[in-house]
Nucleic acid binder design. Structure first.
Lengths: 182, 182
DNA sequence: CGGCATTAGGCAATAAGTTGCATAGCAAGT
DNA sequence: ACTTGCTATGCAACTTATTGCCTAATGCCG
């Protein structure tokens, strides 16, 4: 039950429809907790049934109708409880490192290729984070309290991407060197 | 089907029983792909059925019998195929960052508490990585090819933990400052 | 008008992972 | 004799997430 809490969190600020939420999970919050729209719609239904959210149908002109969800007192309390619970570190799961374990036994070429693909991918992500930072979090000391948490999450993302990219570069160098040596 | 590949990878070096594998997944490989013994036993059965592994019962004196698994040609080929497939970046999922999003709306104290707990946890993990590095990977340039991949994975772990700890410290500082200011 | 993208919501099947529990042999300590 | 702990394997129920597919209204482009 973790996506549910991410959804409740997203609804702290504003009432949103499932569709809106899905988009929010493609950017901002989704950087730290990814979810597909299928999952989101399902979870919203459950949360409404449990009384954590209140659903209201909204007719729209020129667009399909939508269902907007509002955080109830109940939901707010459930969220507060969850924030107080200690969460455990998520067990790491990344194919890339597992593949590194096979390096001595098979051709390292595909691993190098993958490292380069990741380099690209993480470089793009870093650029995105940097754009967001420049636009919305350029001056952290003047941020209102409500943005400070998000700023910190973004900062964690920035540091992670930079660290990963630096490692990536070194890893590629090492593997290419040992490849040409053999 | 990802745990299966991690298991195949672990069996590249040596034949192992489910129990042995479970222990391997509590250290080394498990740092990058976590798995419980229940999952491992289940997956081993499947892999044996599919012909990727060959199971052989081994009677032991003074201990319960065990089932040792050996990587077949078939399994080796499947693993090689998998290494060539491009793997996608795992969608990030960490409660901690989601909780940061709720900072302006509720009391930040539990979040600070959690950050400190993580600091502790990641500090211990870093110390563990450093011990492993000092013991087995002190001189990376002299490593045989088969250890270089593992060295790189460990290096990624070291960098990640250090980055996280530095961020953690800054995050705690910022939150405590804004807490006392309010 | 036809086709395509966007907005909006959903179902069903499957895969993957977690939690809790069960069994059983043997060793070593108390 | 009793308990604790390690080795060794497993089942069942459940939650969580992924994949693929579907409907339906509207706007826009050619």
């Amino acid at each position: 039950m973790a996506l549910s809490h991410a959804i409740l969190t997203a609804l702290l600020d504003e009432d949103l429809s499932g569709y809106d939420l899905a988009r929010k999970f493609e950017t901002s919050l989704g950087f730290f907790w990814a979810a597909s729209h299928q999952q989101i719609y399902l979870e919203l239904k459950k949360l409404a049934e449990e009384g954590h959210l209140k659903a209201s149908a909204v007719a729209q002109a020129g667009r399909p109708d939508k269902i907007v969800y509002h955080l109830t007192k109940n939901g707010r309390a459930a969220l507060a409880d969850w924030v107080q619970e200690a969460s455990r570190r998520k067990p790491a799961k990344d194919d890339l490192y597992v593949k590194l374990y096979s390096v001595g036994h098979t051709d390292p070429t595909p691993v190098i290729k993958e490292l380069k693909a990741r380099q690209q991918e993480h470089g793009e992500r870093l650029a995105l984070y940097e754009r967001i930072q420049a636009r919305h979090y350029a001056d952290p000391s003047s941020l209102p309290l409500q943005r400070q948490g998000i700023y910190l999450a973004l900062d964690a993302g920035l540091r992670y991407e930079r660290t990963f990219l630096a490692w990536c570069e070194d890893a590629i160098k090492l593997l290419e060197r040992s490849q040409s040596a053999s």
